[in-house]
Design a protein around this nucleic acid. Structure first.
Ligand code: FES
Ligand code: FES
Lengths: 138, 138
DNA sequence: TCCAATCTATACCAATATAGTAGGAAATGT
DNA sequence: ACATTTCCTACTATATTGGTATAGATTGGA
């Protein structure tokens, strides 16, 4: 049940991006430095976020990344799907299980899955940022 | 976000056990056969469930396993914890992260984690069995 | 008593998934 | 042209999961 580093680094990068007051894009290297994380790895994560149209990129000299949506319109679910693909709590809930026909538990996993999805859809980036502002300055 | 085979095989075994009308214990090999799963592997899972006092075992000849609680008193959360250890959605929510001090997202993960735990605590074996009875006979 | 059946314990191995690296190609402002 | 930066793809290392093997302990019954 653990979120991968992709999701976690991705979320943190988005928080950093959303705190960028200026209009100039933020470089991957800058975001990575803040997180003490490999630039190359983070670049790939940012690329996934870009493909999902959560952020935009500017290539070339003085390039970087900027948010493409308002924080309140970016859910953790979206972020998850962008970097990991769709959420599935078990093979059952996606229907690609070899034992599918005889499986009685399908709807159990399906129900749990959709409840988890709801939680993550409900949690948006703006809420995350509120928590940041409340709790600690960095 | 995927449940491991331990959780899934474990749940299925518990459903099978709860459907055992007779008073005689059910052998691991019998449960495994129903699931088309390795006996040895399932034995270990059953052992975890036993240590969590969800089931009881009878050793020796004509031995096997029986439920130790009523299905409505066994939550999927309990099953999860029994076979996998405590649920943690990220290092943050357990507090063993090297970046903990500077981490702003702790409570975000913590909140999500506890919501997921709530879902799983809410889903008990009796409910799972209802679904079985409704949907398909096997 | 001895044997077969059954759970228990532990160590080991294989397959898969995650996390991270590396090198270079393409774009862009100066 | 050139430095800077994103983009693309292949590779590798590490961790986790899933599963096997082996030996031992316990019990009921012939
Ligand atoms: S469809 Fe696979 S065990 Fe449920
Ligand atoms: S405590 Fe680790 S990134 Fe949150």
């Amino acid at each position: 049940m653990k979120f991968s580093t992709k999701v976690r680094y991705g979320l943190k990068a988005l928080v950093d991006l959303s705190m960028n007051e200026s209009e100039t894009p933020v470089m991957a290297s800058h975001l990575a430095e803040k997180q003490a994380v490999s630039v190359k790895y983070l670049e790939r994560i940012l690329n996934s976020l870009k493909k999902a149209e959560i952020i935009k990129s500017v290539r070339g000299c003085h390039g970087g990344y900027v948010l493409n949506k308002k924080p309140e319109d970016i859910s953790i679910y979206e972020i998850y799907v962008a970097v990991e693909g769709d959420i599935s709590v078990s093979p059952c809930s996606m229907g690609d299980c070899p034992r599918h026909i005889a499986c009685y538990a399908s709807n159990v996993w399906g129900e749990i899955n959709s409840k988890i999805v709801d939680i993550l859809k409900d949690y948006d980036l703006a809420t995350v940022i509120e928590r940041v502002d409340d709790e600690l300055s960095f």
